[in-house]
Computed example of a mutant assay.
Amino acid sequence: LLELRKLNSVSPVIKVLRQIREIYRLIRLLARLDVDVIQTWMYQSDLIGGVVGTLLRKKIVWGIYSSNLEREYYKRSTYWAIRLCGSLSRYLPHRIVACTRAGSLAHIDIGYPKDRITHIPIAVDTNSFKKCASKRFSIRQSCGVGEHTKVVGMVARWDPQKDHKTMVEGFSLVCDERLDVELWLAGGYGMDDSNRELLELIESSGVTSRIRLFGAIEDIVSFYSGIDIFALLSNGEGMPNVLLEAVSCELPCVASSVGDIPNVVGEYCQLLKHNNDLKLSQALIKLIELDKGEAVNLTRLGRKYVIDNYSIESVSKRYTDLY
């Protein structure tokens, strides 16, 4: 399937022929492995896996995630894949796994059969996602940031579903109140200095010197360990992994009240019902000034909650039961 992603620079006819070739190779591979269940994840893979599984007469399990399916937030090809999956969802998959309840409802609205959808949440490797004092020291030292500085961090790709504009503008209001703050932005797909639109947004904030771009980073636990508050501003979500990872790393959090976020981590997170720079700045300042003992108690309870409900062990058992 990875070969299907390498076809952007060739003609449409050659691209289609190569895709057919790769699908044929996939059919031969799965036939040779003699699998019992084909599990796919997200729309293009659901379509391919659904067709291949039907040809091989295998059990098919689709995976769905998003809760915001509006046209404006997707590339044209992805949007039409979503709609086609909605039409075929009564015929191809035997079961459909939704990792969020909000996502289940959104997909039912476009034709997915309710009786085939099973809710299994995403999992977090809680043994890996935990705060680390040595990693905190290392990343802060490399950035020249002392312990007195309060660092707000956001991990999200550059995408219409993510609201970096409100994040940057809200942070600039925090800077009007405090001198001891920084904003760290990380993520793939345009979260570096090659993104002119992002750079213009940061420059217009007036606090360029207090914002750092990390781009895609391999050691995300170092990033979580280095910051003091995690923020996630979004126009739409299912249940973002990064938010559960941040709670697992015992970080105070603020996030948009979208998708399954209120139901899943609302008790351990400051929620913004509407993305608004003033409301965001107020929430961030509240967390910055939170009593240390109260903050420790809240974040420890949050980590325990993630371990009890979203650890790999607890979620994998639910997949085993499904299969």
Rank of each mutant, 00 (worst) to 15 (best):
Glu182His: 06
Cys269Gln: 04
Val10Thr: 12
Val16Ile: 04
Ser205Trp: 04
Ser77Gln: 08
Ala102Met: 08
Glu200Pro: 00
Glu147His: 03
Gly49Lys: 07
Ile82Val: 07
Arg212Met: 12
Val264His: 13
Leu29Phe: 15
His119Tyr: 12
Gly238His: 01
Ser281Leu: 10
Trp184Met: 11
Gly153Asp: 01
Ser204Thr: 07
Val306Asn: 00
Leu17Ile: 15
Leu29Trp: 14
Gly188Gln: 06
Lys292Asn: 06
Ser234Leu: 05
Leu29Tyr: 15
Asp228Leu: 06
Glu237Ser: 08
Glu177Asp: 09
Arg210Leu: 09
Arg116Ile: 04
Ala186Trp: 01
Gly238Ser: 09
Leu244Lys: 13
Leu84Asp: 04
Leu105Val: 14
Gly215Trp: 11
Lys286Phe: 10
Lys59Pro: 00
Asp192Tyr: 07
Arg32Ala: 15
Leu69Ile: 01
Leu179Gln: 14
Val306Cys: 09
Lys286Met: 06
Gly144Asp: 01
Ser314Ala: 15
Leu244Cys: 03
Asn8Gly: 13
Ile82Asp: 06
Leu26Thr: 12
Ser225Cys: 03
Lys292Ile: 05
Val174Arg: 04
Gly111Tyr: 10
Ile122Ala: 06
Ile27Cys: 09
Leu278Tyr: 14
Pro160Ser: 07
Gln282Pro: 10
Leu173Ile: 08
Arg140Lys: 09
Glu72Cys: 00
Pro262Leu: 11
Val265Arg: 02
Ile211Phe: 01
Gly236Tyr: 11
Ile261Asn: 05
Glu313His: 13
Glu313Asp: 13
Asp163Gly: 00
Tyr319Asn: 02
Cys175Gln: 02
Asn275Gly: 03
Thr299Cys: 08
Gly49Gln: 04
Val221Phe: 03
Ser316Pro: 07
Ser77Trp: 14
Val265Gln: 00
Leu287Met: 03
Ala102Tyr: 05
Leu105Phe: 08
Leu47Lys: 09
Glu237Thr: 00
Lys59His: 11
Ser9Gln: 14
Arg212Val: 11
Tyr112Asp: 00
Glu245Cys: 07
Gly86Leu: 10
Arg95Gly: 12
Gly53Gln: 09
Asp163Leu: 01
Leu88Trp: 10
Val168Met: 00
Val254Lys: 04
Val242Gln: 01
Ile117Trp: 11
Ser128Asn: 15
Val151Ala: 05
Gln44Arg: 13
Arg21Phe: 15
Leu272Cys: 03
Tyr79Ala: 14
Gly206Ser: 14
Leu278Arg: 14
Asp46Pro: 02
Arg28Met: 04
Thr100Glu: 08
Ala216Leu: 12
Gln44Lys: 14
Asp193Pro: 02
Ala102Cys: 08
Tyr112Arg: 08
Leu88Ile: 13
Leu30Met: 07
Leu33Thr: 13
Ile23Thr: 11
Val181Arg: 03
Ser134Met: 06
Ser248Met: 09
Arg212Tyr: 11
Gly146Ser: 09
Gly144Ala: 07
Val97Ile: 13
Arg28Glu: 08
Thr54Tyr: 08
Arg157Ser: 10
Ile217Ala: 12
Cys85Phe: 01
Ser134Gly: 05
